[in-house]
Write a protein that binds this DNA or RNA. Sequence first.
DNA 1: CAGCTATGTATTTTT
DNA 2: TACATAGCTG
Length: 830
Amino acid sequence: MSDFPDDMPFFDGPAGGPPAARPAGGGIAARAMAARQQPAAPDYLRGLNAEQSLAVETTEGPVLVLAGAGTGKTRVLTTRIAHILATGRAFPSQILAVTFTNKAAREMKHRIGMLVGEAVEGMPWLGTFHSIGVRLLRRHAELAGLRSDFTILDTDDVIRLIKQLIQAEGLDDKRWPPRQFAMMIDGWKNKGLGPAEIPEGDARAFANGKGRELYKAYQDRLLTLNACDFGDLLLHPIRIFRSYPDILKDYHRRFKYILVDEYQDTNTAQYMWLRLLAQRPAGAAVNICCVGDDDQSIYGWRGAEVDNILRFEKDFPGATVIRLERNYRSTAHILGAAAHLIAHNEGRLGKTLFTDRSDPDDAKVNVHAAWDSDEEARAIGEEIEQLQRQKHNLSDMAILVRASFQMRSFEDRFIEIGLNYRVIGGPRFYERQEIRDAMAFFRVVAQPADDLAFERIVNVPKRGLGEATIRQVHDTARALGVPMLEAAAKLAESDELKPKPRAALREVAANFERWQKSLETTPHTELAETILEESGYTDMWKNDRSAEAPGRLENLKELIRSMEDYESLRSFLEHVALVMDAEQNDQLDAISIMTLHSAKGLEFETVFLPGWEEGLFPHQRALDEGGRSGLEEERRLAYVGVTRAKRNLHIWFVSNRRIHGLWQSTIPSRFLDELPEAHVEVTEASNSYGGYGSGNGGRQNPYGASRFDNVGSFSNTYSTPGWQRAQQNKTEATDRNWGTRSGHQVERIGYGETDSGFGAGRTSVKGRTIEGELVAKSVSNEPSRFAVGDRVFHQKFGNGYVSAIDGNKLTIDFDKAGQKRVLDGFVMAA
DNA sequence: CAGCTATGTATTTTT
DNA sequence: TACATAGCTG
């Protein structure tokens, strides 16, 4: 395999030297000439700082760029590619540039385009791990037992397939949830493990010890279906590279430069894939450049191995390591807060962001308290309106939450006050039911062997084909070794079925046959419309009286519209399989609401970080399941959040949050303790409910008293929330005093030697004491202190009678607020 | 077979 | 609480 059919002419130029001919793209040539003639740096290098220049110009040998938040990471990456191209070190097709997301790939393409013009078009190997994986696999599909027109299954397909397999094994799919097994497979594939390689323990943990057999059966089934899951897009190429050294060598020759973005997010399989491609004969240098930030590794839970970046110098001896620490994004206060926070993590490569900007007008990081999530949303809404009045654009602001349920209170509030907002992330276009249904129709037409798609829509719209009939089609297909569509056609001709399902099947089969015929003759957008019409799918939604139906029809139209950008049905299907997001179109001025995870890589003038409470952030589950490293990942997430802000950062926490439908009293996040006093200001909630007397429970206030009523003293002394938490834990155990809680304590997390070497109860790390003892205890398992019929008082709902008790959950009939379920610890005897 | 009520379970997300 | 899924009933 030495031909690269779809590429531009491939020159193998003298080792180390530039190719003899110039790549296409007039602008580059001119610039390169200019660069050669003048000693001065070419245009694209101008404005880079010393470290950035070094990262761009150290083209030979392994390079690790540790790029802190806001230090110009993307700029370095794109300029480096431009530099390689402009100096004629390689052709566009000889550069392998990998990103994680399609968005990042698009962005990179765009920015390289700005620098070098047309030449980006010739960069076939710039893309996500998966899109490049597909490209490789389509070329060598037969070596993996696939045809080159294999389909790519998404999570939904995978789960349905696994469910079938579990049932086929005669196992109970309730006891062994397909979803869970799909996750296990995903986990194994992230580690690069095939059925034969998984640990015995893992194999036994599922399906009565049949885990391995099930995984094997799953892989076999994929081959029969001529299909791949996402993991296979990496694993198959890895196997091919290992089994066919000649093929691998061809790629070695081809890829003169390898660049990897967000290296801290690579999982083991991606790492193996990269290692294979980066192999070089002994003594030969690898031109691999990995860019990343260990402090922004927030995807450990889905298999990312921070270790990959920590180990880089060992993996690539003689590597140049470049630290980008000059931050161009944020104020000194924000950077100070971020640095102090992240310093609590161990096992870092260690970077300290700095900036030259020192504007006395720069605001400190603001920490605010609110009574509950509604008040939090209301107050943030007011702050936003205030900024709006000062001519700030909504687009320059963002609310970054830990978990998506938090978005709701903001959406509710913003709808109420008429504030434009945009939710980023969320359920994506191609994951909507109507889109997936439509896609399933298209898939069966383009790919008649796609049984999963077939099963999804045989009975859509409802045709009276129930489970029994579908099972029969399935069994027939298995028996004959043909796709289900074909089996359906056969069954419809036989007399094995009752008239009704038989007629229905006959119609389905006839429909698909007809559509398949027009595939070659009809423009694909037109065909798509025809399919949706003739199948009765659009009518189904037209007749649907529910509120979502019109939107769904709108989405279907949008789907057809987006197909116009593609040449064929097939290329469109491929696009959708890999790119699950639809580009955000609107230019509307709106505030962004998104999770912290999806905020990575973005920046905003003003950032709001609500919900900094123990249990939510850090998330209880991360703590329970991830232990110390789970906590550290949460802290990195906090760091990512903080470093998104350019000028203003507002952090919020509430005293009460409704979680799973019941109110819980919450405790400020430990991360608040870890912010440096010097850069932080604790602000009194500027809400209309302020001034409700302090220290006495404030019953005259309809919302009850907040223990941050006298947030003033809290502000003055910055007695840490952590200390308050400690105090609270103590007081709550003995009495239920909801009055003043602020103290005048010194921050216990200090640097230096003061705390080390004392009792064993304290966790001492490198001369600094990390507070480890004050973990919140949010839910008690003890029997309730109350009995049915007790008269109780609740801070939010007032007085009432206990009507039922379920563990520590009380159902209370409140005099004014009606019946509510609340936690035991949240009420007191009246 | 389809609509209803009971039941269980509630991070983070990409491809 | 709220949503999704599952099993039951018409």
